[in-house]
Amino acid sequence: MRTAIELNELTKTYGQRRGLDGLTLQVRAGEVFGYLGPNGAGKSTTIRLLLDLIRPTSGTARVLGLDPRAGAVELHRRIGYLAGDFVVDGRQRAGECLAFLGGLRGGVPVARITELAARLELDLTARIKSLSKGNRQKVGIIQAFMHDPELLILDEPTSGLDPLVQQTFLDLVTEARTAGQTVFMSSHIMSEVEAVADRVAIIREGRLVATDTVTDLRSRSFLQVRLTFADPVRPEEFSVLPGVTDLVLDGTTLTCRVDGSPDPLVKAAARHTLTGLRADTQDLEELFHAYYTGHAA
């Protein structure tokens, strides 16, 4: 399978501080790859190394089969990039700015810019300095997507966007994947990554903690179960069940954590009269925090 990004033992130090520590990672061509971690974990450092904005202390990176430094001119034509701190000349109108950036990429049809602006509800006649943070972010999203690049590298792409525009952005990402484009999306907002990513990587203090599909990560999640019975039950009936931990019995209400199949717990509960049942699964954010604090396997 072709790879769009391949990192091998990539390390970047800033004096005594390490931004990345031996990062080895592959992103497959045509997938949406979520890159998760809180501020300071090394996400932006990784992206800047991919784009040759900074140079690694050691290790190697290949982007679309090319060295980021030697192939910088070609790569910058083939990549759509949205920086976490997107900044352009505030004196320009949004449409003028996008036309200028499109010209630098060899020309982008005006109809394409207009279409994206309409979907994101951006006024192309407004001067950038008059725009809110969310509307400036829309300019950044449009300039990244408008030339239909092979690879999209997006650093905290929905910063400042309202929920409806966030959904439009996620639609654009899904459409890019359908068209065969690769999306590398750095974020600390788990819900947006969970909605569109094929695989995710979790980074902690410059080191890779986990890489997996969203489906497989979710399969490792546990259930938080709350059972309410008509009459008192003995906790021993449930504490010995496989996968049941953190059991607490308060009157006729039993709460516990279930790892794996809930079938033994359900069968044991069925021997009594239930008046209430609730089971909550972890979302990706809870899984992330479990990995990040070292509590996950």
Rank of each mutant, 00 (worst) to 15 (best):
202 I>E: 04
18 R>N: 03
127 R>N: 05
119 R>E: 08
94 A>L: 10
17 R>Q: 00
58 S>Y: 00
260 G>N: 04
215 T>W: 09
2 R>L: 14
51 L>Y: 04
115 E>F: 12
92 Q>F: 14
196 V>P: 12
185 M>W: 12
112 R>L: 05
51 L>N: 02
197 A>D: 07
59 G>Q: 02
171 D>V: 12
292 Y>Q: 04
50 L>N: 11
143 Q>Y: 10
8 N>W: 08
285 E>F: 08
173 V>H: 12
268 A>V: 06
245 T>K: 05
183 V>T: 08
98 L>V: 09
183 V>P: 13
33 F>I: 06
157 P>F: 04
121 E>K: 15
237 E>N: 10
174 T>H: 15
40 G>Q: 00
27 V>D: 10
269 A>C: 04
121 E>D: 15
117 A>H: 08
294 G>P: 07
14 Y>N: 00
3 T>K: 15
241 L>N: 09
171 D>F: 12
112 R>Q: 10
129 K>M: 04
151 L>Q: 02
129 K>H: 13
42 G>R: 03
243 G>E: 02
213 T>I: 11
134 G>E: 06
142 I>Y: 01
205 E>R: 13
1 M>R: 14
104 L>N: 05
96 E>L: 01
194 E>N: 13
207 R>Q: 15
293 T>N: 13
89 D>C: 08
154 L>K: 11
216 D>T: 14
204 R>D: 14
163 P>D: 05
164 L>I: 15
15 G>E: 02
117 A>M: 08
74 E>R: 15
130 S>W: 05
189 I>W: 03
17 R>G: 00
80 G>P: 01
261 S>G: 11
187 S>L: 10
9 E>H: 09
180 G>P: 03
235 P>N: 12
226 R>M: 05
159 S>Y: 11
252 T>D: 07
79 I>N: 03
131 L>P: 09
98 L>E: 04
176 A>L: 03
136 R>H: 08
168 T>L: 03
99 A>M: 09
4 A>N: 09
231 D>F: 07
29 A>Q: 14
124 L>N: 10
17 R>S: 00
278 R>A: 14
264 P>W: 08
101 L>N: 04
228 T>E: 05
201 A>Q: 13
108 V>H: 02
294 G>D: 00
280 D>N: 07
159 S>C: 10
234 R>W: 07
138 K>T: 01
271 R>F: 02
211 T>A: 15
185 M>I: 15
12 K>A: 01
34 G>V: 04
153 I>S: 02
187 S>T: 13
48 R>S: 09
285 E>N: 06
240 V>D: 09
34 G>L: 10
217 L>W: 06
277 L>N: 04
259 D>A: 15
284 L>S: 06
73 V>S: 14
